[in-house]
Design a binder for these strands. Sequence first.
DNA 1: ATCGGTCTTGGTCATGCGGCCAAACCTGCC
DNA 2: GGCAGGTTTGGCCGCATGACCAAGACCGAT
Lengths: 232, 232
Amino acid sequence: MTKTDLTAPSSAPVAAQPPPEDADERILKAAGKLFREKGFAATTVREIASAANMLPGSLHYRYASKDDVLLALMNRAVKRAMSAVRTAIGDVKDPVEKVRLALRAHLELLCNGDDSLYVLLFDWRSLPAGAREGVERERGRYESFWDGMLYEAHGSGRARPVLDIELVRHFGFGAINWVATWYRPGGERTPGQIADTFFAYLAYGLIHEPSRPKDLDTHFAAVMAASLKGQG
Amino acid sequence: MTKTDLTAPSSAPVAAQPPPEDADERILKAAGKLFREKGFAATTVREIASAANMLPGSLHYRYASKDDVLLALMNRAVKRAMSAVRTAIGDVKDPVEKVRLALRAHLELLCNGDDSLYVLLFDWRSLPAGAREGVERERGRYESFWDGMLYEAHGSGRARPVLDIELVRHFGFGAINWVATWYRPGGERTPGQIADTFFAYLAYGLIHEPSRPKDLDTHFAAVMAASLKGQG
DNA sequence: ATCGGTCTTGGTCATGCGGCCAAACCTGCC
DNA sequence: GGCAGGTTTGGCCGCATGACCAAGACCGAT
């Protein structure tokens, strides 16, 4: 497979003509794809190297261990997610609209972007215990960033008065992140459309207005009271 | 570790006094726990055997391969989920209430029950290609069962007229299943409370009534139209 | 008391893994 | 045009893995 590549650029003799710093990128991209498809533990260093078009030794030169590759990939995922969301909301002021745009950006990155975000979310267990703390901190910052947006939206007065922001974040993240388990590119819905639909579900609910209890604020307060501390 | 077990029952010489059919159960239980904690590929047959209090050879007697253990575990997960939900709804007639109870049952099994459901949901990639079809069929039946409940609830007239049932299921499953990634037993919310809160979010939405657009049915129809076929 | 079949034991085997390295290589700088 | 470093090469090593099995222990039936 490595030697029979007839589509290689003309008479390339042996090695080292692709751009130098691109090698790291190739490794992470290949690793992301493989980790996503088969999981971290089921992927071998040789496979990553081969997919990145290099020999195992070369990979070892950049990353001392397989764990290091995963670590770098996850850190990159947080960085990209954060920056994608920041870019998406731009200078929009409406705090509810910001949440919608952020949701779109997150889902689009997860579905169309590279695989690092998927690996961050779904291969969490593979991270060696020692490295977990660092990634956890970065991931925590991303989640706090979301909490900030949600607090803002909540503070705007347009959300229900009684809400548990952390639970809301978990709820939304779950719905959105789970898309990665069933979404297939080329389906009849784009990630942006899925995100908008989910946002509408989240914002307005699935029960038809005529069929709702009269005082939903009271209803929510009751449910939330049962949900906080104490088993009722 | 195997030989220094001083707490063994008195003078037990070598083998074979635990109940006979319990061995399978011990294997699946141990495997579920380990697969959940470390993932399928990162778990060794020896670890499973040791956790099930037997030697690797004994495990091999019951299951020809590690894949077989995973397969049995996953099939059991679908069976248990289906039966847990069926039991939970009992003979309740209200189709919306049925969904709430089903949600509770699913989440309680995922959080408090054995680990097989978690493995089914999160270690999907580890299933060998050959065995995938069978599990997929069973899992599909569970999902169809949910779709049936959702259709019923939708047909009752209490849900919004324009909804994509499959998308709704994905949405709810995502929110609920994701709980398994952050829930820790002994926290301040029980699975049942989380499920009820999530159901309230889902049913009634997070935006406060006074701040909603006037005609939400039209709003939803527009979002859904954009979400089905065509990129708009 | 003995027997037959079910189940467990404790170890072996080939395979493929992650980690590693010394030598060759290429490229830009003096 | 030669030199110094960063980079790649291709293969090696010790080890843990999944799969497997022959021998024996146990138990209920006779």
